[in-house]
């Protein structure tokens, strides 16, 4: 029973990963892609982590899985922010230099 639930969660998480990759490939510009990516991979990893921790043997493993999920969520949020800020600044300077010319 527990295995079944874990399997379902992992399968659902994998679907989110696939969705994120499709978004990465199909969305038109960098901001849309960023949106698809951070949402999808954050949620996908959360579901997989939940499924895996249901199958874990010791509490230590569960703790480490939760820690991993926490760090990935944090890094992906901040990474998304940094990339977006970078892309926006690049766009601005490009526009600025065009107007200057």
């Amino acid at each position: 029973m527990l295995d079944l639930v874990a399997g379902l969660l992992i399968a659902l998480g994998t679907v989110f990963f696939v969705a994120g990759t499709v978004g990465l490939l199909r969305f038109p510009d960098i901001y849309c892609r960023l949106h698809a990516l951070t949402k999808a991979d954050g949620l996908g990893l959360a579901l997989i982590a939940l499924g895996a921790s249901l199958m874990a043997r010791t509490p230590g493993e569960v703790f480490r899985i939760v820690l991993i999920w926490f760090f990935v969520a944090l890094a992906s949020a901040v990474g998304g922010h940094l990339i977006a800020a970078y892309a926006r600044r690049m766009d601005r300077t490009r526009e600025g230099s065009l107007r200057h010319d």
Binding site: F71, L74, A75, V78, H81, L82, A85
Partner: peptide, 16 residues
């Protein structure tokens, strides 16, 4: 200039 979000992230992550 990496901004406020980065500063908060650094405060949390570097010790970790």
């Amino acid at each position: 200039a990496l901004g406020m979000v980065w500063a908060g992230f650094a405060r949390l992550t570097l010790p970790a």
